[in-house]
């Protein structure tokens, strides 16, 4: 998240806003689920993709604010108790602050993303426990985490396509 380039205040705000809007789209996709016989796949952790790829040059303050709104929106849209995803996203964003992202290709990125998802799963589990008063279903939680990791390459490819079309420095 460290700002390596000099961008204007408007641009840094615009990048944070872009992250937020992309996050809203991802939230809609993460609300979908897939029922295949006895198997049920949920993609609750897809929005972690947006936090992981949050624009580097985006304004930090605005980013925090938009991530707060994104988490709140996700909690409302998924009918969860308020605050679980808000806290998870904020803590993940703060943890990733200053950690340089590797540009070693899909393999390493998947590992890094998986770590982010697992970290988020643990944080969400703890706050879920606090909110519900009893531990959330750990199997479902980590099942959703794995399902989100499995579909990650599709979103990675879509992002790469987007980056190729637009200027790499300005896009997500």
């Amino acid at each position: 998240m460290t700002d390596q380039k000099t961008v204007s205040q408007t641009q840094s705000f615009s990048l944070a806003l872009q992250g937020f809007l992309a996050g809203i789209i991802i939230v809609f996709l993460s609300l979908l689920s897939l029922d295949l016989g006895i198997l049920h796949f949920g993609f609750s952790f897809l929005p972690v993709f947006i936090i992981y790829f949050w624009p580097c040059a985006a304004s930090y303050t605005w980013s925090l604010f938009f991530i707060f709104l994104l988490g709140m929106y996700y909690d409302i849209a998924s009918a969860n108790p308020l605050g679980i995803w808000t806290l998870t996203f904020l803590i993940l964003f703060m943890t990733l602050d200053g950690v340089p992202k590797s540009k070693s290709g899909l393999g390493i990125t998947i590992i890094e993303f998986s770590l982010c998802v697992m970290f988020s799963a643990i944080v969400a589990f703890l706050f879920g426990w606090l909110s519900l008063g009893r531990p959330p279903q750990i199997v479902t939680l980590f099942g959703n985490a794995v399902a989100s990791i499995v579909v990650f390459p599709i979103f990675y490819w879509l992002r790469s396509l987007f980056v190729t079309i637009r200027s790499p420095s300005m896009s997500l």
């Binding site: 303050t61 925090l64 707060f68 108790p81």
Partner: peptide, 27 residues
């Protein structure tokens, strides 16, 4: 200043989480 904003937002989120506990009636 960045840290204080971040911790303020986390604090607000925790307050919301505790206020909405099991009720799901906020907002």
């Amino acid at each position: 200043s960045r840290r204080s904003i971040a911790f303020t937002l986390i604090f607000i989120s925790i307050v919301v989480l505790l206020a909405d506990r099991q009720q799901r009636s906020m907002l």
